[in-house]
Simulated scan of single mutants.
Amino acid sequence: MPPPILVPATVSDYRREAQRRLPTFLFDYLDGAAGEEVSLQRNEADFRAIQLEQRVLRDVSAIDTGVDLFGTHLDMPVVLAPIGMGGMMARRAEVLAKRAADAAGIDMCLSTVGICSVEEVSAVSGRPIWFQLYMLRDRGVVQELLDRAWASGVRTLTFTVDLPVVGARYRDVRNGMAGGTSALGRFRAGLGSYLMHPRWLWDVGIRGAPHSFGNLAAYVPGAASPNQFKAWVDKQFDPSTDWNDIAWLRSVWKGHLLLKGILNAEDAVNAVDQGADGIIVSNHGGRQLDGVASGIAVLPEIAAAVSGRCTLLVDGGVRNGQDVVKALALGAQAVMVGRPWVYAVAARGEAGLKTWLSAMKNDMRTAFALTGIRTVADIDRSMIRQGL
């Protein structure tokens, strides 16, 4: 394994350091995707292929990367995406993410299957978090989760629509996380990896307990490990979910409603027609159907289809501030970032995530200055080099 990096400068640096610190099965769960991971690779490659148009001799002495989103001001148009089992990557990682997001002046979205509960994360500060939800078979649990989120101050709900079934994630199969091996086999495989990562074992494995899915602990009382919670959740995903369920959700949720996981213009129009306030253009980080388009590739056609009727975000492949500018130029109002924030917090804790978010903002400021713009409102399609 390569030597440690003294000062991480890129997401790749944090990823490499996270790989050194995490047990193999956890790193692969975080880092991996569906199938042969074609869509995962495409997410980043499609961003790299987009070229910005550099402009010179413009007054860029006063740059402002801020934006207003769903009634809240963000110091940059970035939201930390929901990550399942995030709290297994660093001790109470979702709480650390909330602190880092607060320091950066941005929002974070907590996963239904995060280790920390909505109550624990919301207690960090008075700035509300977003909450991500699946349509579970037990609609009573869904309603209770909505009620708990609202009571915790959540006003922006992100509803994931691209998970009627779980994608074929081969790395999880190989590690036994997707089943196919005995509990003893999983324990032995995990034990070897734990012993090779004593820092994680002490800091997260021992000091980071409880390792339950905090939002679901009351509904799976017999579960004692994240794998047991995950098995319950996998059985709860409801393949019968359709647009009628979105209409029901819209009727019971009084806050902002975003649908996450849309890659098709017709689906985007349906989402708006059902009352969605926002759409997150996403292929679930490549973790569901391998071989589909990246979010950034289909963003322009979805932006054209909804024509300003809702707020658009995009995720998947965002790795730096230049990528944020590219996404906004192609029709998004903000981006979500998932793996990068977890790499950073796994590698260097809260301080590492704060440093990376600061670097993201500096990247954005550099991109603003060298493309000749001063505010988010100045960003448009002309910033993308045409004819490529």
Rank of each mutant, 00 (worst) to 15 (best):
P3N: 06
V7K: 13
Y29M: 11
A33L: 05
L40A: 11
R42K: 13
R48H: 13
Q51A: 15
V56R: 13
V56P: 06
L80I: 15
A81Q: 03
P82C: 04
R91S: 15
A93Y: 07
A104T: 09
L110E: 09
S111W: 00
A123D: 02
A123Y: 07
G126S: 14
P128C: 08
I129F: 05
F131N: 09
Q132G: 05
V142W: 06
R148D: 12
W150A: 14
S152E: 05
R155N: 11
V166Q: 07
G167L: 03
R169H: 07
A178R: 13
R186K: 10
F187Y: 14
S193E: 15
L195E: 05
W202F: 13
V204K: 01
G205Q: 10
G205W: 08
A223L: 10
A223N: 08
S225A: 13
P226I: 08
D234W: 14
Q236K: 06
W243M: 07
W243A: 00
K254E: 14
L259I: 02
A271P: 03
S282N: 05
D290E: 03
G291Y: 00
S294C: 06
G295H: 04
D315C: 01
N320M: 02
K326D: 13
A327N: 09
L328N: 01
A329L: 05
L330Y: 00
L330R: 14
G331W: 09
A332T: 12
Q333N: 06
G349E: 09
R365W: 04
I373T: 12
V376P: 10
I384A: 06
Q386P: 03
